[in-house]
Design a protein around this nucleic acid. Structure first.
Length: 265
DNA sequence: ATGGTAGTAAAACTA
């Protein structure tokens, strides 16, 4: 059965080799046209290409040892793959956090935005700069009239409803006003939050549950920090956008949290 | 106010 929409999803794997038992069945069941993965935590030479190839999926990946790492999986051809910000002397970590490609007539940017560690840590400045560098990349390489999607682990809860106990998170690197502002300024290039376009004002819609917090899912102690942002040609054609959490299928509840958007084509 | 656990990969480190 051919569908009249393009299904794009994003998933933070926290180690792709430890999540294949979740990712492979999920791909089969949901028939995503594009799955963007972050925190693969695997160097390129060790990337598990075979299991994807065996189910006729193409993969593009960019990783480093132990940390970070991004990948794109698709049943379609993955073209024009780039990693990092496209500098002559590319930073290894940036290359393992940013991968762009074309699938059908969609321009896709998959990012694992630096978490930032602490407000007074140098990594937090790097995080803020990432958003302006991304906006520069968008405006340099793409047009707002393109079918363009930026998705991934953005590490920002944009609004109070996007995190539990927001009053206690004002100095958190994923909720501080400076990082929310930086994210919004980046979006100001011309992209909108697909999830909020479909579910405006809906509270307790989270994409991330810290596995260190006991029963975080049941207690609704989560964050909406993974996002799918799209330009107007796509935003005006969103059929659906939803968070797929199926804890019954996972050993741990946070193992199985996908953010999905369906774009009418 | 802090810590809680998981993954990678072989002792810390990031989240």
């Amino acid at each position: 059965m051919k569908r009249n929409f393009f299904r794009l999803a994003t998933y933070n794997a926290n180690g792709i080799r430890a999540r294949l038992h979740i990712i492979l069945p999920w791909l089969k069941e949901h028939r995503a046209d594009c799955l963007c993965i972050q925190e693969t935590k695997v160097r390129n030479e060790d990337f598990p290409q075979k299991p994807f190839g065996e189910m006729d999926m193409n993969v593009a990946f960019s990783g480093q040892k132990g940390y970070n790492g991004v990948a794109v999986v698709s049943p379609h051809e993955i073209r024009d793959i780039t990693t990092g910000f496209g500098l002559e002397k590319e930073d290894q970590e940036d290359a393992a956090r940013l991968l762009t490609c074309r699938i059908l007539d969609f321009d896709i940017v998959n990012t694992y935005v630096p978490q930032g560690r602490a407000l007074d840590h140098p990594n937090f400045q790097k995080k803020l700069e990432w958003f302006s560098r991304l906006r520069d990349l968008f405006s340099k390489r793409y047009s707002v009239s393109d079918k363009f999607v930026w998705c991934g682990d953005i590490n920002v809860a944009p609004e109070e409803i996007d995190v539990y106990a927001p009053e206690k998170k004002l100095n958190h690197v994923c909720f501080h006003e400076s990082v929310r502002k930086a994210f919004k300024e980046c979006m100001g290039w011309g992209i909108s939050d697909c999830f909020r376009a479909v579910h405006p004002g809906e509270p307790e819609q989270y994409t991330f549950y810290d596995y260190r917090i006991p029963k975080a899912l049941e207690r609704k102690l989560g964050w909406r920090i993974d996002h799918i942002l799209a330009t107007k040609p796509l935003c005006t054609n969103i059929q659906d956008c939803f968070i797929d959490i199926e804890p019954r299928k996972a050993k741990k509840p946070s193992d199985h949290t996908f953010l999905v958007a369906d774009f009418r084509i």
